[in-house]
Amino acid sequence: MSDELVVLLDHDGNRVGSAAKSSVHHRDTPLHLAFSCYLFDDSGRVLLTRRALGKKTWPGVWTNSFCGHPAPGEAMVDAVHRRARQELGAAVRDVVCVLPDFRYRAEAADGTVENEVCPVFCALVDGPVAPSPDEVMDLVWAQWAEVRTAAALGWAISPWAQSQVPLLEAAGLPEWSRASV
């Protein structure tokens, strides 16, 4: 099995090449393309996941539903569908990009750096969720107000989710997610 490739970006967000995912998350992480997705159910609850302890970046930390990196030449929405299946064993529908220009840099306690242009999506789950234990160690369906409170208080959630939650709220969540706002 070959190593997953990520898309490298210049400072202005232009694609400048690719690199093995295993080679880009370290103390001097190059800027690269990623995405985050918040998955809602039909009653408006959002799925939060706790990253598996074997994950290279932010192991054991609670975060948004799932994240990933589009492969070179892969459409972002196709990457969202692919990672939903890989990480959560789930199908998704009604994928909406809410924060197309989200960008962040975060450093973990071990010195590992995330440095990503990371559009943020919301989607509806389409069937059961069966997470991969290599990706997810725990999950919870929560009301958006609970997610907002966790982010505002800086509870042990990923730094990207802490930044994304208030921005998502300001940008306006999709209408179908409003049942839990």
Rank of each mutant, 00 (worst) to 15 (best):
G73P: 14
C122R: 00
D12G: 13
N115S: 00
V147S: 04
L33S: 14
V24L: 08
A179S: 03
A150T: 04
H26Y: 09
P119S: 07
S180F: 09
L31H: 11
Q86L: 09
C67Q: 13
V125H: 07
G17N: 01
V125Y: 03
D42A: 14
L8A: 00
W176G: 02
S43T: 14
L139C: 03
V147H: 09
Q86G: 08
V120F: 11
A151N: 06
C97G: 01
Q162K: 10
V96L: 02
G68N: 12
G89F: 08
V113M: 04
A90K: 06
E169A: 00
A130T: 13
T57R: 15
G13W: 00
D12M: 05
V96A: 07
S132A: 06
C67N: 15
A130E: 10
W176E: 04
M1I: 00
G111N: 09
R45L: 07
A150M: 07
P119T: 02
W62L: 12
E114F: 15
Y38P: 02
S65I: 09
P174C: 05
R50A: 06
A150C: 04
G54E: 15
L139Y: 15
D10I: 05
G68K: 10
A34M: 12
R83I: 04
A170G: 00
L173G: 00
N64E: 04
S180M: 08
G44W: 15
A34Q: 08
S2N: 05
S180Q: 01
A71S: 12
T57Y: 13
G54W: 01
A123G: 05
L33E: 12
R27A: 13
C37V: 14
W160M: 11
C67K: 12
H81L: 14
V136A: 06
W141S: 05
A79V: 09
V95P: 05
A79T: 01
G172E: 09
S22Q: 08
R15W: 10
V16M: 01
G68V: 14
A106R: 10
D110L: 11
C37G: 09
H81I: 15
P128F: 07
T112H: 06
V77L: 10
